[in-house]
Design a protein around this nucleic acid. Sequence first.
DNA 1: CTGTTGCATACATGCAGCCTGTATGTTAAT
DNA 2: ATTAACATACAGGCTGCATGTATGCAACAG
Lengths: 196, 196
Amino acid sequence: MQQESRRRSNVERSEAMRATLIAAARRLFTEKGYAATGTPELVEAAGVTRGALYHHFADKQALFAAVVESESAAVAAEIEIAAPASLEPVAALVEGSMAYLRAMAAPGRTRLLLLDGPAVLGRSAMDEIDARHGNRTLREGLAAAMRAGAIRRLPLGPLTSMLGAMLDRAALDCETGGGEAEARLVVEALFAGLGT
Amino acid sequence: MQQESRRRSNVERSEAMRATLIAAARRLFTEKGYAATGTPELVEAAGVTRGALYHHFADKQALFAAVVESESAAVAAEIEIAAPASLEPVAALVEGSMAYLRAMAAPGRTRLLLLDGPAVLGRSAMDEIDARHGNRTLREGLAAAMRAGAIRRLPLGPLTSMLGAMLDRAALDCETGGGEAEARLVVEALFAGLGT
DNA sequence: CTGTTGCATACATGCAGCCTGTATGTTAAT
DNA sequence: ATTAACATACAGGCTGCATGTATGCAACAG
């Protein structure tokens, strides 16, 4: 009956352990933040010991990075569903932006990805992660809109970076009471203002 | 000769001690970040003991908040010099924005105010500080431009917040090699796009 | 094909060092 | 004399590592 859990290949064991640790870490990091979450509490929530943690991850920060990577990918996936390439360029930008705001409304995501992430991993490391996920979708949307002549031609890197930061901030504002509708007004006005 | 430093009123002693601690803290927090700066090292750099620190500040976080408050005020002062009310509204917005970027180029300021600040003090506390300093100047500039009919009427709170975040991000990008000239292009385009 | 032998991997436990916050002691101002 | 300003000593917790143990795995012998 417990034969499957006893007789398990090493790679299965490792993957299961990593998943368990990442799941527990995501829960605690999103609920209490990075600094307030200790590794003793973390492994106790996961039902394992600190030995397992430090076997699979170099340090607490590496586990945090794994959680950030995972959540960042989940957010990007939600965006790509809401803003398919079939939409008109500017509409896709607006819809993708709103999908980002909805995705970031998941409890604790803003703290994990926007507050603790940059402070713990540093801006450059977060940029590298973002470039593969959330910001990539925005960059592609902007590039498509420029190619179609729907918005002005501007330096793509800085523009993506700055508009992304604007959306990050909108996600934070939505969480602290700011209405999503008002954010949409501003987003639409800014994208419209970029029109040729 | 040392009479002045021996015979000193208590309020003078306190103010001098607070200033000494804040100065040392600013240096270390900007050089190494909040988490990597320990209070033993901090007081040793200031030439005092930990007793003095915990006499004047509730905890390490409170000292950090004092440093943030001080730097934030300094940045706002630099902006108000560069963007006087005599300028035309949109020009004042652009010049104020560029002054903000230059002010944030001081070593370590971006880490202090944009990375560690939000993570350590929380978004709401940082907002409360910003509302009295950096973001206040932007809000006033936007309100004036709206009153003059130079830009579209949009919800002032969200607009200020999101444009401020955009400038924060531009400051970070400038630090990691991104050219200030490119940032200016984007800033000018966005403000121009807001024009009526 | 099967049992055993040797090694690598996965994990548990215990330890050392550091840091934070507080409680207690001492000096100087009022 | 009383209180404020600071120094010193202490307790608790946390991180990372080093050591110990069990389990999977591969090769070889019989």
